[in-house]
Simulated assay, not measured.
Amino acid sequence: MTVPVPGATVGVVGGGQLGRMLAEAASPLGVEVVVLDPTPDCPACPPAADQIVGEFDDRDAIRELAERADVLTYEIELADPEALADVGDEHDVPVHPSPGTLETIQDKLVQNRAFADAGVPVPSFRAVNDADDLEAAFEEFGRPLMLKQRTGGYDGRGNAPVETVAEARETFDGLDGLVAEELVDFDRELSVIAASGDGETAAFPVAENIHEAEILRESVVPARTSERVREDATAVAENVLDALDGRGVFGVELFEADGRILVNEVAPRPHNSGHYTIEGCHTSQFEQFARALCGLPLGDTTLRQPTVMANVLGDPDAEERPAELAGVTSALRDDRIALHWYGKRDVRPLRKMGHLTVVGDDRGELLMRARAARDALSFNQ
Rank of each mutant, 00 (worst) to 15 (best):
C42H: 12
S226W: 03
A202C: 02
A310M: 09
L216Q: 11
I76W: 15
G248I: 02
A318N: 07
G274K: 09
V184Q: 04
E231A: 14
D334V: 02
V31K: 06
A114Q: 02
V10T: 01
V249A: 03
V179S: 10
D335R: 15
S124G: 14
A26Y: 03
S378Q: 11
A195P: 01
L65K: 15
L350F: 11
E170H: 07
R59V: 13
G364I: 02
R345D: 14
V71A: 12
A160M: 13
D133I: 11
G364W: 03
P270E: 10
L183S: 12
V87G: 09
D187Q: 12
G327W: 09
R217Y: 06
Q17L: 08
Q288R: 03
L296R: 03
P97D: 05
A292Y: 01
A25Y: 04
G177N: 06
G177V: 07
L216T: 11
N311H: 11
V347W: 00
I76Q: 09
T277M: 05
A290K: 00
L377S: 09
A257C: 08
T104Y: 03
G54T: 06
L262Y: 15
P47E: 02
Q381H: 14
V328K: 14
L339I: 12
L78E: 08
D86V: 15
P43N: 10
R291I: 01
H340N: 14
E365N: 13
L72T: 06
R59T: 14
A267F: 08
F141N: 09
A323R: 12
S196V: 04
D242Y: 01
N264I: 03
E139A: 15
R345M: 10
D89H: 10
P270K: 12
E182I: 04
F286P: 11
L216C: 12
V359E: 15
Y342V: 12
R269P: 08
R68Q: 14
P297T: 06
P97I: 04
V95C: 06
L22T: 13
T302M: 06
V266H: 11
P97N: 07
N380G: 02
A233P: 06
V110N: 02
A233W: 10
T73Y: 01
D335L: 14
I337F: 06
R260E: 15
F286Q: 09
R321S: 13
V110S: 09
I261W: 07
R230W: 00
A207F: 01
A257W: 05
L303D: 00
S124M: 04
S98F: 07
F56K: 06
F172K: 13
